[in-house]
Write a protein that binds this DNA or RNA. Structure first.
Lengths: 151, 151
DNA sequence: TATTGTTATACTCTATAACTATA
DNA sequence: TATAGTTATAGAGTATAACAATA
């Protein structure tokens, strides 16, 4: 192996041209963060989507499936499998709403609340590691800048 | 429809609890930006992955497939289909390397270079719209903060 | 008529293992 | 032995259409 290449440009990183696009930096950084978060959640039997849904249900007991999906920016149809997973793990229950018999109210179980708290702490630790290069002020600044992006 | 819910919390957004995680804000904001970028690229016959690969090839003619995949943070195996797409569109060519007959040097065609330039301009316009709420200084600050995140 | 949950389906992205031909 | 490109495959996320029950 010579390490040689047929490329003319050998000095700059190959993705330099893409770095002028903010979206590219966002995508690469987010992929890094979410991959690490997924690794943290995996031993707890959670994925990012299931953790997110569980967190919403724990913080808004009785939430409907459609509301949940909308809050997480996902399709109603795709939320079904996520909620199935949480229900099979006995972390949440589905209860027919008395007021509107079409709707289903999602309730967290005691085990679900405990698991969510545990996963939340693990993720906060993970973020403290990933964002160690940023001060608390800079972390808030990052979130603030992200919140000002509009489609 | 009453608009009523079984949820106890009706005032705050349902994903408030998730907003304490920086990764959540990053994921939602990035999804918004990349979805819009994909819409911009689609009429040009490009997706984000194919545009990214084409851009690297245009800026580093002769780059190898393995180098390309590494630069974009994707698996070698997954880069094959992306390069197939670019080759079938006649935007790039595959050439066996003379120095190392295992390797393939990727070269952009004239049409490929033109398409990349066109797509790049469309994406810069798209970003000017998405990031209109941020000054140029703030955009650079955002990228700088993202670059300091470490796994 | 419209909405809720659901099923079916398809497409993209991603990840791993294994093969071939070259080094 | 190791590397470059490739194939096959499977999992996870995402998107659309259509259906039954209910409003």
């Amino acid at each position: 192996m010579t390490g040689q290449t047929d490329s003319v440009l050998t000095e700059a990183a190959l993705d330099t041209a893409l770095r002028e696009l903010i979206g590219y930096s966002m995508k690469r950084a987010t992929a890094m963060v979410t991959a690490d978060a997924a690794r943290v959640l995996e031993p707890m039997g959670l994925r990012i989507t299931t953790f997110s849904a569980l967190t919403v249900i724990c913080n808004a007991p009785g939430v409907r499936q459609t509301e949940l999906a909308a809050a997480l920016g996902m399709e109603r149809s795709n939320s079904v499998a996520v909620i199935d997973t949480l229900e099979k793990a006995h972390w949440i229950t589905r209860e027919r709403s008395a007021r509107d018999r079409r709707a289903i109210a999602l309730q967290p179980t005691t085990a679900g609340i405990m698991r969510q708290k545990q996963a939340r702490l693990a993720l906060l630790t993970h973020e403290d590691r990933m964002f160690a290069g940023l001060s608390q002020i800079e972390r808030r600044e990052l979130v603030k800048l992200l919140s000002r992006i509009r489609a």
